[in-house]
Amino acid sequence: MNQASLECRHISLSYGATPVLRDVNLKIEPGEFFALLGPSGSGKSTLLRLIAGFNQHQSGELLIDGQDISGVPPHLRGVGMVFQNYALWPHMTVWDNVAFGLVERRESRDAIRRKVGAALELVGLQDYGQRRPGQLSGGQQQRVALARTVVIEPKLLLLDEPLSNLDKQLRVQMREELKNLQRQLGLTTIFVTHDQEEAMTTADRMAVLNQGVLQQVGTAAGLYDEPHNRFVAGFVGTANLLEGQVSALDGDTLVFDAQGLGRLTLPVPAEPPAPGAATLAFRPHQIRIAAEGEPADADRVWLQGRVEAAEFLGEFARYRVRVGEVALVADQPHYAGGAMFPPGAQVRLGLAPTQLRYLHR
């Protein structure tokens, strides 16, 4: 398989007066498994369809292996796409569905037989060639759609919400199969999803979009641990976000005036934030929740609060704790026999200063 690079340079697209993509700059490396992540209406599917050639940008350049393909029609781009609904021909057998692109290219019968057989074996459906799509499960239909796409040996593989039609257990299984297949082929793959877990467990890197603007690009751990802004912090995983002001930096001490919570005196981080308006971000699992009177870790900053709600989620318990005028979310690992804090309980929340992130707006 080819390993192509893709680059978007200052890509912008509008529908009438409505901007959908705004000055998108993005580079995807050869052989990379890359995710476009964002909420509905963020522009991620529009960007994927633009790469496929179904949409046309008004400004910017779209390059595959350094060549601008902006004016190249879809069937000449060397791009394969798997649609959300798989788009299989219901009246054709699995074999004929997979062979369709090769037949359209007028390849020889021997080449078609060899390539279709290899593609079906690749996705584990070598014994299903004479069945029709309606006789297959959702996961099997998706494999047929993948086989039909990879059989034409595209430079890029595009996946539009590939797992959204499957139940949760099958989604987990199929994302592992997708990842293994991509690694086996070494094929540059771009997939669209709104599911954070799907992107974080599958992609080498991902781009987060919101309202047509590229917010941040990086690995799952990089985006989770070091979000660039408030949107990324709140969208990639769960985060507590405190609005306020960095009002003073004095030696080893930083003062953060949090709206609705009050003044926090914190250690200065390795990269000190500039004074001014900021959002203080931290994850629920990074908070230690303790009962009144329980010994406190000296390396944490402690806040007094009251439990408003408690949820048992299996591997952990999630609490909503009122601290001043602010409700914070805190997670606590669950161990057999451990008691949960009931609503109304007075507790203390311990913040780990090394885990706090200051996001300027």
Rank of each mutant, 00 (worst) to 15 (best):
P39T: 06
G16F: 14
A207C: 02
Q184G: 14
C8K: 01
V98A: 03
A291I: 07
Q182S: 14
L21F: 08
P133I: 02
A199Y: 02
G66L: 10
T93E: 03
V208C: 07
M174N: 02
D257C: 14
R288E: 15
T193N: 01
Q126H: 15
M340D: 11
R106K: 13
Q3F: 09
L328D: 03
E197T: 13
E292Q: 07
L242E: 00
A327V: 14
N229W: 07
D65F: 05
S14P: 11
V144E: 05
L13F: 12
A310L: 06
R357W: 11
F33W: 07
H360A: 15
R318M: 14
R148H: 05
F34G: 03
R113D: 04
E32P: 03
W89M: 13
Y15K: 05
I287K: 00
Q216E: 07
Y86S: 02
L242T: 01
P342R: 05
C8D: 02
R322I: 01
D96R: 08
L36N: 05
A327S: 12
G134W: 02
A317W: 15
F191H: 07
I64T: 10
Q215K: 06
E243D: 13
F341Y: 13
E153A: 04
Q141P: 15
R106G: 08
T238Q: 00
A199I: 03
L266F: 13
A119G: 13
G251L: 05
G251A: 04
L264R: 07
R183P: 02
Q304C: 15
R113A: 10
Q169E: 12
R361V: 14
E308T: 00
L36A: 02
A111I: 15
G262N: 12
F316Y: 15
V329A: 12
P353C: 14
T265E: 10
P39A: 09
C8H: 06
D252R: 10
Q355C: 12
L349S: 02
K44L: 05
V150Y: 11
P273V: 05
H334L: 08
K115E: 11
F83C: 02
R300K: 04
R283C: 10
Y358D: 13
P333D: 09
E198C: 12
L37W: 11
R49Q: 10
T219G: 14
T279L: 01
Q216D: 08
D252T: 01
P272F: 11
V82Q: 00
A221G: 02
E325I: 00
G31Q: 04
L125Q: 11
D297R: 15
L181R: 05
R288C: 12
A290V: 14
I190D: 11
N55W: 01
A274D: 14
P227K: 00
A87Y: 11
V268C: 14
P73H: 07
W95L: 00
V20Y: 06
V20D: 03
Q140V: 04
T219I: 12
A203Y: 06
L313G: 09
M1S: 14
R148F: 07
L185W: 10
V307K: 04
Q141D: 12
P73R: 01
V82R: 01
G344E: 09
S164D: 09
Q84F: 06
T354M: 09
L102A: 08
A145I: 03
P154C: 13
R171D: 13
T189R: 02
D250Y: 15
A327F: 10
E104T: 01
D23Q: 10
G260I: 00
L102F: 09
D167C: 08
E29G: 07
A220K: 08
H57Y: 10
T238F: 04
A290Q: 13
G251C: 09
Q245V: 10
D225R: 10
